[in-house]
């Protein structure tokens, strides 16, 4: 119940903070000094109002169940999503340092293991094979065939 109010509250909050940030924009050196400000001001104001309306709408139906949210917190789903995000951050940090090939194999491999589990040798073989082969094909296609510089 609190959860479903979170998004509208967040939308209103973004609208409001963007509005404040717009007010604080530097003045333009030429022409109308407030020129850069008007458009974001109008938009963030609009977003704030819409956020509030959305909040009220949700408030009215706050006692209804939302099936999808239940699913989101069922089983290992939240863990999976968080794991995927952590791995993505790791990938970002290592992408330029380790080079494309190594970092991608690690990223894809770990992701496959996290999602598929790592019981049974068959899974090990497929996971590693997919990670290595796919990374290599990508690397070959991009940097060798297309000549796009990957780190």
């Amino acid at each position: 119940m609190i959860l479903r109010m979170l998004v509208p509250a967040f939308v209103s909050f973004i609208g409001l903070s963007w509005f404040i940030a717009s007010v604080l924009l530097p003045k333009a050196p030429l022409g109308d000094p407030n020129g850069p400000m008007y458009y974001p001001l109008i938009l963030s104001g609009f977003l704030f109002v819409m956020g509030v309306i959305y909040f009220i709408q949700e408030l009215k139906v706050r006692h209804q169940e939302k099936g999808i949210l239940k699913k989101l917190f069922a089983g290992r789903t939240p863990k999976l999503i968080i794991a995927a995000l952590i791995l993505s951050i790791l990938y970002t940090l290592t992408f330029e340092k380790l080079g494309f090939l190594v970092s991608t194999i690690i990223f894809l491999g770990l992701l496959l293991f996290v999602i598929n589990g790592f019981r049974g040798w068959k899974k090990w073989v497929t996971n590693i094979a997919v990670a290595v082969l796919f990374s290599f094909v990508l690397w070959y296609g991009f940097s060798q065939l297309l000549g796009i510089g990957l780190p």
Partner: peptide, 10 residues
């Protein structure tokens, strides 16, 4: 960058 004035926004 705001094109018309060169001001950096957000």
């Amino acid at each position: 960058i705001d094109q018309q004035t060169g001001v950096y926004r957000f």
